[in-house]
């Protein structure tokens, strides 16, 4: 992976990387990709992708309203709030 790809991926993941970090990740991720590319030795044509252990089914729930959480408790750990709202730097539309 080159520096440009690293920067693109870092942006998608919203990770701010310094120049040294970018270089380090470029090196390490390339090694990991080498490891990962060993997968190509396996023939997988026509194999159904497996996203979950087979026995796992999706259980549904009934449409019932559950207990509420007090807003002060919900917001207690938030870095910045006002009047019951989470605050972030202004989003420009």
């Amino acid at each position: 992976m080159n520096a440009e790809e690293i920067e693109k991926v870092a942006h998608l993941a919203r990770l701010g990387l310094g120049a040294a970090e970018r270089e380090g990740y470029a090196r390490e991720l390339s090694r990991i990709l080498d490891l990962v590319s060993q997968m190509n030795a396996a023939a997988t044509e026509g194999v159904e992708p497996m996203t979950h252990p087979d026995a796992a089914g999706l259980r549904l729930r009934d449409d019932v309203v559950g207990p509420e959480i007090d807003r002060d408790r919900l917001l207690a750990g938030a870095p910045l709030t006002r009047d019951g709202l989470y605050l972030v730097p202004r989003v420009i539309e």
Partner: peptide, 24 residues
């Protein structure tokens, strides 16, 4: 992402910068 709980970077310019600094 530094919005609802957990760590938020102490200094940032804007939303994108907050995300990136908080997460890095």
């Amino acid at each position: 992402d530094g919005v609802r709980y957990g760590f938020r970077a102490p200094e940032y310019q804007d939303l994108e910068d907050m995300y990136k600094k908080t997460r890095s």
